[in-house]
């Protein structure tokens, strides 16, 4: 395959913290992929943008939020973070409120991200 034009792995996160394990399990895939030396991009799509709220707390049984995992992303060299601009507006969020720096992507640009990655995993 054309590895120069294509990034390797896109992990799409479409859920917020606590309500389900999708966010945590999606992030685990991204972290393992990066630990294995793969070039990993993350897209926070739809409700997934709420994963980036700074004010997250532990859950009812003291289960960890996903903030510590998010803070690990730069250590794993995951620097390609994309956030759904339309969803930011839906959830009344702005880029400077997010727990890690991310780039906005409009809905019409999302399909480019999907095309540009060899493997896309949707969570």
């Amino acid at each position: 395959m054309n590895d120069i034009a294509f990034n390797r792995l896109l992990v799409v996160l479409r859920h917020g913290p606590h309500g389900s394990s999708w966010l945590r399990e999606g992030l685990e895939v991204a972290l393992v992929g990066a630990a294995l030396g793969q070039d990993v991009s993350l897209l926070f799509y739809g409700e997934g943008v709420t994963a980036l709220l700074k004010e997250q707390q532990v859950g009812p049984l003291a289960q960890k939020g996903t903030q510590p995992m998010l803070e690990m992303l730069p250590m794993y060299d995951i620097e390609s973070l994309w956030v759904d601009a339309e969803a930011l507006a839906t959830y009344d969020l702005t880029l400077d409120e997010l727990v890690v720096p991310a780039k906005e992507v409009g809905r019409h640009e999302v399909s480019d991200l999907f095309q540009r990655h060899r493997l896309v995993l949707n969570f």
């Binding site: 479409r14 799509y45 739809g46 809905r107 019409h108 999302v110 399909s111 480019d112 999907f114 095309q115």
Partner: peptide, 11 residues
């Protein structure tokens, strides 16, 4: 809706 937004013109 998320699906449609993520689709390119040939998908």
């Amino acid at each position: 809706q998320q699906t449609l937004d993520a689709m390119a013109s040939e998908d």
